[in-house]
Amino acid sequence: MNEQREILNSTQLEIIIKRLSQELIESHQDFSNSVIVSLQPRGKYLAKRIISCLSENFNINSIDSGDLDISFYRDDLLTKKSPIITEKINMDITVDNKRVILIDDVLFTARSVRAAMDAVMPFGRPKSIELLVLIDRRLSRHIPIQPNYVGKIVDAIDSERVVVDWLKNSVLILKDKNE
């Protein structure tokens, strides 16, 4: 049985996505030398929302983007108890000499981001790599990786799960009662 509490509702989520988009514009201007790369599965939804926000609200269109599958680069591939689901790689772009913006929904241990940095390298030598996340679980890091753009910082304990529900546009913290 799970206990849950909402930490972001749809209005707050909308405001945050708009703010993150504006922060990106501050740094990347018209995105002519930047690419947005999402970490599948869930980073894809945030990347889509940011790309459409940039287009609808700031008239910045045709941003190069791709979706990574990091499965093959994970460090827990052989030890993870549940099978890892591979996603379709959608990277018809080069990152060579580009400023790469990695996007994921929740930053937890940062092991996925480490794998994503490995996974992005075969597509060229990026000029730089930045990280944008909706939720930063700052107390849970296993690797010294910090995001450049953060939607909301959350202090959650290990037994809690932070879940972004893109259908209901809300962010929840789930706690297992058995914990």
């Binding site: 499965s71 093959f72 680069y73 591939l77 790689i89 490995d118 390298m121 075969p122 597509f123 060229g124």
Partner: peptide
Amino acid sequence: IINQPIKKVPS
């Protein structure tokens, strides 16, 4: 992956 410039994955 095997058509990328870097064809090796650490899996």
